[in-house]
């Protein structure tokens, strides 16, 4: 199964119905993508498939054949969202953070607060009450 992973062409040998989440974590060792619920409710496993945020726990490997998959590792360590999640304490325990950042990538520049709330409505955070996450995204997206 061939697809593009963080900009590189990769061949996966996992069975075609494997969860994309498991393929990323176990076959490719990309453990930045987290499992929180396994049923598409919490968003901790959010990755981008052809630029759109999806829950990788719900996507079978076969569905990303020839597609482009981006994970948190594909962002490197110098993205404005990453810096502002740190500076604004948008990350507390951090387990939802990679998924939050991947979901926030889909926002346009200078989003309104409502835009952000809607974009993150599928990503649960139990630590922050979301307010610091909004502050982080607002700052990153206005740079």
């Amino acid at each position: 199964m061939r697809f593009t992973l963080n900009g590189e062409t990769r061949d996966a040998s996992s069975p075609p119905m494997s969860r994309l989440l498991d393929v990323l974590r176990e076959e490719f060792g990309l453990t930045g993508t987290k499992e929180g619920c396994g049923e598409g409710e919490c968003g901790a496993c959010t990755v981008l498939v052809d630029g759109a945020p999806v829950c990788s726990c719900l996507v079978p490997l076969v569905q990303v054949e020839a597609a482009s998959v981006q994970t948190i590792e594909g962002l490197g360590d110098d993205h404005p969202l990453q810096h502002e999640f740190m500076n604004e304490v948008g990350a507390q325990c951090g387990i939802c953070t990679p998924g939050m950042i991947m979901a926030a990538l889909s926002l346009d520049e200078h989003p309104t607060l409502d835009d952000i709330k809607v974009a993150l409505a599928g990503n649960l955070c139990r630590c922050t009450g979301y307010a610091a996450i909004y502050r982080a995204i607002m700052k990153a997206k206005s740079q």
Binding site: G32, H83, G94, I101
Partner: peptide, 11 residues
């Protein structure tokens, strides 16, 4: 902070 924002933190 940065380990959590880059996905490098190990759970």
């Amino acid at each position: 902070g940065i380990g959590k924002a880059t996905g490098q933190a190990r759970y």
